[in-house]
Nucleic acid binder design. Sequence first.
DNA 1: TTGCTAATGCAAATGCATTTGCAACAATAA
DNA 2: TTATTGTTGCAAATGCATTTGCATTAGCAA
Lengths: 125, 125
Amino acid sequence: MIRQTKQRKVLQDIFLKENRPLGVEEILSLGREQVTSLNQATVYRNLKLMVEEGWLERLAHEAFGTLYERADKEHHHHFLCRSCNRAFDLPGCALDHDNASLSGFQVENHEIYLFGICPSCSTAA
Amino acid sequence: MIRQTKQRKVLQDIFLKENRPLGVEEILSLGREQVTSLNQATVYRNLKLMVEEGWLERLAHEAFGTLYERADKEHHHHFLCRSCNRAFDLPGCALDHDNASLSGFQVENHEIYLFGICPSCSTAA
DNA sequence: TTGCTAATGCAAATGCATTTGCAACAATAA
DNA sequence: TTATTGTTGCAAATGCATTTGCATTAGCAA
């Protein structure tokens, strides 16, 4: 039977509050603000559970490593800020479906990544 | 001074012939058809050189690992076949620029990945 | 041809993200 | 409260892609 621990609660809260994909490091440091003893292995174990139960989804890009985000979102894509190294959701889809494919290729799904500077970084400049 | 070795020549030929992104395993096995002794370390060393001199570009996606492709191509995106696990180029750009961004985000570049079944796999079925 | 040294093959070593064993701890059912 | 057993923290262990040390091989300038 699954128990509700404070570590687990903290992780859930973080994902509910930060509305964007998060990496393990980031999750760990945000989590330690609530539970000082929070351990990396605990984060990994819980992320794995949350993915298995379908509450989180995993997302990875070479430039930003592995990220996790809530699974309850509609189809969307991501923006990656090269300045603060954070990922953001871009609601909606900017794929031009008519020109997307090539004859003979059966497209089942897709991913789009935009790179650049996020609002807070460009304001700070 | 850089020497032209037969291993190097084989690697270049492979990239010129196969007109799509290739992974290390694939390069190694294609290369061994020409030079039986071809070693993985040699492939890695040469790929690194070719990237440094700008002849190749590196590309990575979690589902397909690290791939390399010639750098002399125009802007394009990639199709990844979940059946044969190969990557293909999709000439042109299917990004709907007007709907791509979000207010405040400065987009500098982007990547698009399409997933599905490639022509030869769907014919073979 | 010959000499110099870049390049190769092989195996061992790295670097890193993620996983795991284990003892101590803590969330529930009774 | 108490017993049960899921969880955590810690450190050591994995798994893997990529790199490196070294002896041998082989381009290429002279």
